[in-house]
Nucleic acid binder design. Structure first.
Lengths: 211, 211
DNA sequence: GAACTTTTGAATTGTCCAATCCAGAAACCG
DNA sequence: CGGTTTCTGGATTGGACAATTCAAAAGTTC
């Protein structure tokens, strides 16, 4: 997408570009944007300085490519789980998968998107907009499940699926942050559980008719 | 606290030190740690380079002083509101105050502590620990209210006040982050409301006896 | 396979910024 | 007041790192 100069790209070039972005994304997820120098990227990606500048105008352009990459990876990566978010059991499975992932990571590094957002929001307006976009896509995935439940009459009519989705994503982000800071999955679990419990309390049992 | 060399401090020195920390804290809250140079601090605080290094060993030491400062300011600053968190009305007032504050800020800058945490967690272990401490103090303030309600029998016995407090802080942090990224208080409101609604649903009405 | 374009490596430059130095002013203490 | 310590200002240094340059290698196209 972001090419320094217009023109075609060979298959090899595409691979090199991807290697750079992937390396930068991994490093930035682990050490933050400020903690990642282009020298680190060079080393981790096995590329030289001029290659980076061949594909990206400057560091800012690389950062934006990383955001795009994370948007695709994070949201795309949990697609199978998101698709099942239209039942309480699906929500619980999603919760468990996220908690388990953080546990395996030893709670290091928060959300790849959230961390970027926190670091760049007041520094680069374009980056902020790109990250907002990623969050919207993510939230949409969650929202679809709630909407389906609502449509099927499994959620109380007074429940607001869209607002519920926003709150779910917020709880996830906050839970991830606290979990990262504390090096303990407890906050993440507590944050998600309260949302799921709340959704549970809004659930209309299929057996007896309402009221 | 963090002096370069042991010795006494005059009243003037204390004021200068505070001026440096306050200026650094404000700048870092607005532009992030990486976005704040010591030159900015110098200018904003009206001090010279040597003054900063007279009171702090290096930039890292200054950052830690800023964390301490924010811990005191943020948690201490909402003490009057936190003290009233033992009723549903008090919780609502707290929620409204936070939302109103973000609105006045035009949703710029997230939580002063949370932002520092996200940026420093993987960069400086000591900073991470200090921030964890601030969160614990904050959470304790919230927890006290829930515990009081629970003790008075206003919360269902099966409710867990400590876990509720953790989830509340997580929702707040996540809400602040999304609100910062979206430049819209909606996510913050949704995140806090779902928690308050949940607490409300756990509330035992004072009139009729349980069961 | 020849002409052209894209891709790559290594060396280099320029800038920003953290950190240091030192000399003089102000404050403290007998 | 005289000696000592703390505090302050300005100028400077050193290093890290983003960004540039250029020529050679690999790849593409006809």
């Amino acid at each position: 997408m972001t090419r320094t100069s217009g023109g075609r790209i060979t298959a090899k070039g595409t691979r090199t570009r991807l290697r750079i972005v992937a390396a930068a994304a991994a490093l930035m997820a682990e050490h933050g944007v400020a903690g990642t120098t282009l020298e680190h990227v060079r080393e981790a990606g096995g590329v030289s300085s001029s290659q980076i500048y061949h594909y990206f105008a400057d560091k800012q352009a690389l950062i934006r490519a990383v955001i795009e990459h994370q948007n695709d990876t994070v949201v795309g990566g949990q697609q199978p789980l998101l698709a099942q978010l239209d039942t309480l059991a699906g929500l619980r499975a999603w919760r468990d998968a996220i908690v388990e992932l953080q546990r395996r990571r030893q709670c290091r590094g928060g959300c790849p998107i959230g961390s970027l957002g926190s670091e760049l929001a007041e520094l680069d307006p374009q980056a902020r907009a790109d990250i907002a976009d990623g969050f919207h896509r993510w939230e949409a995935g969650i929202r679809d499940g709630y909407r389906a439940m609502h449509r099927r009459g499994e959620l109380a009519t007074h429940a607001n699926p869209d607002r519920l989705a926003t709150a779910t994503l917020a709880a996830l982000q906050g839970g991830l942050l606290l979990t990262q800071i504390r090096r303990d999955t407890e906050p993440l679990e507590a944050a998600l559980d309260i949302v799921l419990d709340h959704v549970g309390s809004l659930t209309v049992p299929p057996g007896p008719t309402d009221r």
